[in-house]
Design a protein around this nucleic acid. Sequence first.
DNA 1: TATAGTTGTCTATATCAATAGACAAATTTC
DNA 2: GAAATTTGTCTATTGATATAGACAACTATA
Lengths: 247, 247
Amino acid sequence: MIGLASIERRNGVALWRQIADRILQGIASGDFAENTALPPEVALAERYGVNRHTVRSAIAALTQDGVLKAEQGRGTFVMSRKRLSYPIGARTRFSAGLQGQTSERHIALLSSSTEPASRRIAEALGIAKGAAVIRLETRGEADGHPVSRATTWFDAKRFAGIDTAMAETGSVTASLKRFGINDYLRHSTVLSARHADADDLAALDLQPGAIVLVTMSVNVTLDGQPIQFAESRFPAERVELRLSAGD
Amino acid sequence: MIGLASIERRNGVALWRQIADRILQGIASGDFAENTALPPEVALAERYGVNRHTVRSAIAALTQDGVLKAEQGRGTFVMSRKRLSYPIGARTRFSAGLQGQTSERHIALLSSSTEPASRRIAEALGIAKGAAVIRLETRGEADGHPVSRATTWFDAKRFAGIDTAMAETGSVTASLKRFGINDYLRHSTVLSARHADADDLAALDLQPGAIVLVTMSVNVTLDGQPIQFAESRFPAERVELRLSAGD
DNA sequence: TATAGTTGTCTATATCAATAGACAAATTTC
DNA sequence: GAAATTTGTCTATTGATATAGACAACTATA
C-alpha cells in the first residue's frame, strides 16, 4: 500500500514472481480480502504494467501454492490464509507465543548431531572453541502447518541427552526442565532476512524464491548463564514477528 | 553455512541472482572473508552446480554493486562492507543506535504531506479515522550511505509543523522536543520482510530484487500516549536488527 | 623463462520469460 | 436468449537466461 506498485525488469527476478509477491503482500495487507475475487486479469495486467499472460503465470504459481483459486467465467478467488503473529521478547517461547492463534502447536525434531563448536557458537554459549556441542534441527508446527525451521546448539557436556528430551516432549521449555532449568530469558536476538535455501523450502513447504525472516538468539538462565544458541527461520509470507516493549 | 548450498531452478529467480545472494550470505556469515579472494570461478560453478558463465553473471552483478572486485589473472576479491547492526528496544532511536559504528548519521526528509488517517493509522495513533495526519517520507543515512527508508505519521493537530522541524534538525528526538516531548518509548514493533519496491530501491541505492526488513512501530510518551506511527525499511544486505533484553 | 592458475572474451545452442493477438469456454447480467 | 465479463488455450515472436567449448590475457610461482 505504501510505495508505488511498479515492477523492476532485468534484475534476475522474473516478472511473474514479483507480481506473485505483490499479490501475496496485497492479501497480507488487506488490499485483497480473503474469500473474495481478485481484480480480473486484464485489470491486474494494466495495474502492474505487464502482459495478461505474465499475470496468469503469477496466478498459476499462487494457485499451485493454494493461495488462489481461479474459476472460469467467474474470477480468481483468494483462499483464506492468515499470517501468524509471533511475539519476540525477553520471555519468548514458541508454544506460548502462538496461544490463541492456533489450537495445536509443537516442535518436531528433524535430526540431531554432536559437533565441535565454531568460534561464533562458542562465544555465544561461553564455552571453549572446539568444545562439543549438540546441534538440533527442528521444525515448529501449528495446526499441522510448518511455521518455523530452527537450528539450535547446546553445550554437550551440560545438556547431554537433550535431543531425546526434545523428541519426547516437543518443547524446549519442557526439555530444559529435565536439566533443572525451570525458567530462562531471551538474552539477545539479531534479525535478518534472506531467500530460503533448499532445506528450508522443503521443511517449510515453501515455493522457491520465498523469503524467510532469520533470528539468531541466545537464551540465558535467570542469572545470565547462556544455555542455548539458535538460528530460526520463519516464512515471511506466513509469519510476522511482533516486538512488545512490555515483554 | 547452515543448510545445503543447492540452487533452485524454474522458480522465477534467475540462477545468477540466487548465487549472488549466496555469495552475499557467505560474506555476511564469514565464509568469505573481506579483502581476500573468492574461490576461483570454476570452483564456485562446481560448488553451486552451474556453469562458469552463470557464476560470472553473479560476480558481475556484485561487482556492479561494489561488493566484489575481479582482477584478471589474480582472482576475485571481497571488498570490505560491514553490515550495520541496528538495535531495537524500548528506547530505540536512530542516531543513538548506530553510535560507534559510524561517525556521521542523520535523517533526511524526502517529502511531507497531510492526509486523512486510514483505519490502521488512526488506531495506532488513537485518533479518529479520517482525522488529518502528517506523513513524512524520510531516509536514514550513515556516513553518507542510506541505511533506512521510513514513512512516518503524526497527528496533524498536535504536531503541526513537525515536517519543518524534521527538515531542520534531521532527528525525530530533536523535533519532538519542540513539542514538549523530552522522552518517549518504543511501544510496539512488528517485523516482516519483502522485496524492495521501486521507491525503496532508488532511495536506498539497492539493486533490483534486494530484500528489505520492514518494521512497523508505535512510539508513545512516558505515560503511554501514542505520538508516532512508522513503517521503516532496512536493506537486509546492509543492516541487521538487534534485539536486546535490557533495552 | 616456462608453467600453472585465473579472469576475460567470443561463438553457438537450447530453454525460459514476456509480449501480442485471436478465439474458445464458462459464468453472470440484462 | 443475447450480451458482457471473465478465465482457458493456442500460435508466434522477441529477448533474457543458462550451458558448452575454445582460446586470449594476465598474474604468480617454480
